[in-house]
Design a protein around this nucleic acid. Sequence first.
DNA 1: ATATTTCGCTAAACCGGTTAACCGATTAGT
DNA 2: ACTAATCGGTTAACCGGTTTAGCGAAATAT
Lengths: 326, 326
Amino acid sequence: MQDIADKLGVSKGTVSLVLSGKAKGSRVSEEMSKKVKKMAEELNYQPNEIARSLSTGITMTIGVVVTDISNEFFGNLTFYIQEQAKKYGYVVITTNTNEDLDEFNDAIITLLNKQVDGIILVPVDKGQKIAENIIKRHIPLVQVDRYYPDFEANYIVVDNYKVSAKTTNHLIERGLKRIAVICYDINLNALRERRQGCIDVLKKNDLLDLNLIKDINYQDQEVEIEQAIIDLKNNPNKVDAIYFCSRKVFITGVKYMHKNSIKIPKDMEVVCFDKIESFSITNIPVTYIEQPIKKMGEKAVDVLMEQIRGSKEKKQYVFEAELKYG
Amino acid sequence: MQDIADKLGVSKGTVSLVLSGKAKGSRVSEEMSKKVKKMAEELNYQPNEIARSLSTGITMTIGVVVTDISNEFFGNLTFYIQEQAKKYGYVVITTNTNEDLDEFNDAIITLLNKQVDGIILVPVDKGQKIAENIIKRHIPLVQVDRYYPDFEANYIVVDNYKVSAKTTNHLIERGLKRIAVICYDINLNALRERRQGCIDVLKKNDLLDLNLIKDINYQDQEVEIEQAIIDLKNNPNKVDAIYFCSRKVFITGVKYMHKNSIKIPKDMEVVCFDKIESFSITNIPVTYIEQPIKKMGEKAVDVLMEQIRGSKEKKQYVFEAELKYG
DNA sequence: ATATTTCGCTAAACCGGTTAACCGATTAGT
DNA sequence: ACTAATCGGTTAACCGGTTTAGCGAAATAT
């Protein structure tokens, strides 16, 4: 910028005004604007956005904190967030928590120090205190997929309870009676509601058998899920269906059903919370719940942008997930 | 920082030395260090990394440019890159090209202006000129998955030709004779080599039938893949197997095989380049090629870090992919 | 003709850190 | 006892932009 100014015999300020588009307010002559732009082109000037950020306090960067970007659900969510952010001229820094509190903390501290303009995050169990630091720093924040109940912040989620209840009802109407639920024991509303939605409907229909409700620890899921499957297989009364509360438990669960020669759907039917791209390559029938991932990602960015632009209004969206019959 | 200095009646420089850990060189007394740190704690001081970056010219940020982060392969790759970068204290900005040249260009310009310390990218067809801008700016660069042939830059890839040839040989040994190949028409070595590896082996065994080699346009893949499947089904001489050159063609292809009632493996066998997580939920047997994604991601970061730290030596790694029998 | 605006641009402070040069007071060396 | 090195810190320039206040000249108003 100084180079351009020197070559043209003008001041750095003038160059800045032209190049940042603030010359319009009739502050700089058309003629000078042209000259500056031409010289910038010639010298192949590339702005240093770090300097700009320091000066303006705006980094045009948002932080995204998800559980695990290699997970199909979060990969898709992040993709749509990125594409939408791009429309606003924003760039995103993504980080993974692996459902771990320390990693969640590190991610947030890093993002805050990097001076991101806003953060979209997937809450981690017991992480509310940590998330509050974001609010304290007055950085806009949007929660997706889950949210902390008594936390005054934006969120975008689906109605997990409702769709789980609906799904369970659907299974019961089809004549299935002994329905198992396999769900992470993570104490976050999204998972809790999926589990509870089933349980409540089962109870109402007098079909609840607590032996069929399996809670899985995220870190030990491989072994615990296999054990759950074996348990269900050995249950004296035949189990009719298994409701898997997320795609990861589903994949692992079905793997062990195959391994233990449980035939789908002959022996048991399966339901998966989340659509999996490769359902289309498998020939087992699976009932699944499809979340509007694209809408969620885009809305998360839209809400975040409103907040970045100064809105103080808290937005809390609950989308409907769709039940698809396999 | 100035606040801390004022409260303590010392200079900003001293505070900086302490907080940035450069006080060790016996430049600042232990006593003063303690006081500064304590005060920093009390005031809940959080460094502004943007300011630091402007001053040092180091952003501790790397850029990653992939085709599409929601794709399982790139999602995994990005995940391992992020985890490895974290170990170096680095953060990553990810962007998607969707295999589009303009988006590739935008991504790179954005990253450069954001002053990233290095870039890991998945090349896009015809993008070499664009990628050269990175070199011109003296920003370290590592290509993954593919690379531009006459481009003096680092890369991390697998031996696509070799494993494709090996796979084809394996199919032939098993008695399969009419082997089809479905591959994107993208003019990048990775895809070309996968295709050519098959073709060469088929030719050598006098089994090559060009009608069975299908080239797919990335943007129109849905229709073109379906057409290819129908073509193969209607081929007067039964086709024994289809080699799909990437996971996305595979998923789409198998979907249309189901739709057109082609039984796997009875009617045709299938081979997929890339492992898919949900192979485990499907009961069709699939031979697949597993790339060492984790190693590739980690190595990409390691090489990039070497370059960031000043190494001028170009590193070019070719890993072996593994053939897995379904 | 003089006062007031407007125009087009410059000067300089500022964002929040880093760091090289420097400086006075001790300590060490001969 | 005099010089040199070390210690513990300060000062101020610098990174590369943005932005406000201001200034001389030209245009307009009175």
